[in-house]
Simulated assay, not measured.
Amino acid sequence: MNISNESPLMELVRPDIRGFAGYNSARREGVTGSIWLNANESAWRNPADAGLGANRYPDPQPAVLRQRLATLYGVRPEEVLVGRGSDEAIDLLVRALCRPGQDAVVIAPPVFGMYAVSARLQGAPLVEVPLRDGAGGFDCDLEAMASAAVSSGAKLVFICSPANPTGQAVPVADLLALARRLAGRALVVVDEAYGEYSDQPSLAAEIAGQPNLAVLRTLSKAHALAAARIGCLLADPALVAVLRNCQAPYPLPTPCVQLALAGLSEPALAATRERVQAVRAERERLRVALADAPGVRRVYPSQGNYLLVRFDDAGAAFARLLEASVVVRDMRASPQLGDALRISIGRPEENDAVLAALQAGRAAA
C-alpha cells in the first residue's frame, strides 16, 4: 500500500519502517479472475466446508467490512484498520512506532494489561503514571502523563476510556487537549472498547482534525462477538497504511468476517442497542445492591459493562462466588487494587446470583 510521506505522523514512525512495504500477499495484488492459481491454495474445498470457500485465502482488509465499520464509527474507510481484536492494533502500534530501548510507551495503571505486554515484547521503555483514587472514583492525571511523555521521549500514550478495570471515562475535551499538546511528539491512543456503554461520545470524529489521535474499537463487548476476534484502529490514513504493511498477510478469517457483517446488520445493531440499555440498567441496579452487600467497602462508578468493588476480604468474597459457580476477575495483583474484584454485568439472574453468594457470607457469619 502506498504511504504518504507528507503526513506529520510519519515522523513518529520508526525510520526503518517508513518505507517498509511488508509482504505482498496474493490477495493484495489487486488482480481479478475466475481461475485462481496464484496463491498455492487447494482448488478443492475441504469436505467439512459448508459454503465458506475456506480453501481460498481471505481478503486482508475486506472493503465491505471496512465500510460498515467506518459508517458505524463515523469515519472514512481509509481511516479504518481491521484486525484480530484490539490487541493486534496495540501490538502493531508499539512495533511500528517504538524503537527497542529508545521510544517509550506511557500508560496509567491500573489499566488493561496488553499495553504493557506489547511494550515489553518490543523492548520499549514503559512509563507509568498511576491513576488517582479520589472521592468520585479514579481519574487520569493527564498533565502528569503529558509531562512524562515529553520528558521520556514517548511515541505512544495509551488511555483507556471507559477505563478497564476502574470504570471512569475521560472527558473528550481533556483528551483533545492532551493530543494537541503532544502533536509532533507522540500518538495519543484512546481505547474505547467499552464506548457503547458510556455517556461520553467517541473521539473518532476528531481524528481528521487531530492526526496524532487514534481510537481503538472492538466488536467483542457490546456487539457480543468476542470469539470472532474483530477489532479496529481508527487513525490517520497514513498510519493505517503503515500498520497494514506490518500486519500479518491474512489476519481476518472468512467465517469471522461473515459473522461480523451479519452482526453489524441493522436488525443486529438494533438488538445490540437494546442490550446496551439493559446492561446500563443492570449496572446501576447491581451497583446499588452491592454497596449494601456484606463485606463490601466501596463500589466504583462505571461507564463500562463492569463494576470494580473493594472488599474487606476480597479473597473470601472471591471464594464464596466460586462456590456458587460465579467467576469474577480477581484484581488483587494489580497496583492499588489489592482488595478488589471486577464484576462484569451479566443477565439479571446472573447478577442476582452474585448478590445471593455475597449475602450467603453474611448468613455464614
Rank of each mutant, 00 (worst) to 15 (best):
M1T: 15
N2R: 15
E6L: 15
R14S: 09
R14D: 08
I17L: 12
A21H: 12
A26C: 14
V31I: 14
T32N: 12
S34Q: 12
W36A: 15
L37Y: 07
N40Y: 09
E41T: 12
G51L: 09
A54F: 13
A63R: 07
R66C: 14
R66A: 11
R68I: 02
V75M: 00
E79A: 13
V82D: 01
D87E: 11
E88Q: 15
L93V: 05
L93N: 06
V94N: 10
C98K: 02
R99K: 09
A104R: 08
P109W: 01
F112C: 11
F112N: 09
G113N: 10
M114E: 13
A116S: 13
A116R: 13
G123E: 04
G123F: 03
D133R: 14
S152W: 00
L156I: 15
A163L: 10
P165K: 04
V172C: 12
L178V: 04
V190A: 08
A193D: 13
D199V: 07
P201E: 11
A208T: 08
A214N: 06
R217V: 15
T218Y: 07
K221Q: 09
A222D: 04
A222P: 03
H223M: 06
L225F: 02
A227L: 08
A241K: 09
L243K: 06
L243S: 06
N245D: 12
A248C: 10
P249H: 08
P253C: 07
P255I: 09
L261T: 05
G263Q: 01
A271Q: 13
A289I: 01
P294Q: 06
P301V: 02
Q303W: 06
Q303D: 14
Y306M: 02
L308G: 00
R310I: 00
F311M: 02
F311G: 00
A314P: 07
L321W: 05
L337I: 06
D339S: 08
E349A: 13
N351W: 01
L355H: 06
L355R: 04
